[in-house]
Amino acid sequence: MHFGNYVFAEPYLGWLVRGILMTLLISVVSGTAAALLGLWVTRLRLTSRRGPRLAADTFVMIFRNLPLVPLLLFVTFALPRLWLQVTGRAFPIWADLYLLLAVLSADSGANFAEILRAGVLGVAPQQQEVARTMGLSAGAIRWHVVFPQAARIVAPALATRWIQNMKNSTMALVVPLPLGLLEMAGQAERIAGETFSWVQPLTAIAVVYLLLSLGSGWFLNRWASRAQARVQAGAA
């Protein structure tokens, strides 16, 4: 078996680099959106008002147990056609990329919400009470007292989920994206399509993924343990 290094020659190398950038873009955008979504959904899940709480609980319950591949297929292929059939109007031409980002954000957002909920339950109720006696509004208590502590308590789980979200970017394979927007796995498929061999492009992106996930894992876990240390001593 001859490992000719064609993958490092142009134009394939350029494609791979573009793919790496695209992967990072998808990861960061969907991860940030998921984090904000997770915060908001967690806030809704803990309200005493029944309607929003039920809606948020349902959202989490649905998206936590939906696999991404069929969901993406549904959203990008079937949903526009179903919509057309039911309402007679064409689905808005949103770039498939937006749909992909939305689905990834929703999936990770639901998982973030579940993790944060556990964190919030771990914050001592006295913290909220003290803040109340200090005149802070409910929103200020949530944002300045509860959520910062909750996030620190579950910091390792949040870090794991962030990395999982980055790995989920490969689900873009099932979405028909224009060639310029393909992320790493998509570019590998493209190269394999031209050279009839998966081996080199696949190994190359596997190495990149390992570096990315192990590297960011190391960084994130350092942050996570530092954040936890401050809160772990208890609300004294």
Binding site: A124, Q126, Q127, E129, V130, A131, T133, M134, G135, L136, S137, A140, H144, V145, P148, Q149, R152, R230, V231, A233, G234, A235, A236
Partner: peptide, 28 residues
């Protein structure tokens, strides 16, 4: 308007001492 000191001081562990004291001054 009513200040409470609990048995365990219940400081906010994720903030510095000064931030603990100024939080309500700024937000309330």
């Amino acid at each position: 308007s009513v200040g409470v000191i609990f048995q365990d001081a219940c400081l906010f562990p994720h903030m510095t001492v000064l931030a603990n004291v100024t939080l309500a001054l700024r937000k309330f």
